[in-house]
């Protein structure tokens, strides 16, 4: 398992993406699968900064990548407020333009793009575990 710690700032997103996609390629994910993982992780990290920490520069984000036989597991840990985005209403992606809501899309994309998502809240930190399966070769 590889672990890196990033400052909780939006500027970290590109670096986190590079770390995760490199590990995804090492795990044998194809380009599309790796891109989907990158999208889900970006949304998750953005949520942590915005909602768990309530802004940039407040706390760190620990990112673990674990390569498994069937794919890759990414674990994100933060030390902010517990935030469970699953309580956000699902956006209506068939709505007409005038009825489109501006929020809720990030969590929806995470759920669509990942094979497993699990939130855990402890007294001193929060943990989000996401698994992306690779296609059978």
């Amino acid at each position: 398992m590889k672990t890196r710690v990033f400052p909780g700032r939006y500027e970290s997103l590109a670096e986190i993406a590079e770390f995760v996609t490199t590990e995804a390629q090492n795990a044998g994910l194809n380009h599309q699968e790796s891109f989907e993982l990158e999208t889900a992780v970006d949304e998750a990290v953005s949520n942590i900064i915005e909602h768990a920490y309530g802004g940039e520069g407040i706390g760190e984000i620990k990112c673990h990548c674990l390569i498994e036989d069937e794919g890759i597991r990414v674990i994100l840990e933060d030390y902010g407020q517990p935030f469970d985005p699953s309580c956000i209403p699902t956006p209506d992606i068939k709505a007409q333009l005038k009825d489109r809501k501006n929020h809720g899309l990030g969590f929806f994309l995470m759920c669509q793009l990942m094979d497993e998502i699990k939130f855990e809240f402890y007294h001193d930190h929060n943990r989000l575990t996401m698994f992306k399966r690779k296609k059978e070769s």
Binding site: T39, D42, E43, R100, N102, G106, L109
Partner: peptide, 14 residues
């Protein structure tokens, strides 16, 4: 790459 933050800007501008 584009995330929901980018998508929100496009929707608001559209």
């Amino acid at each position: 790459f584009i995330s929901s933050a980018g998508l929100r800007v496009l929707i608001a501008t559209l």
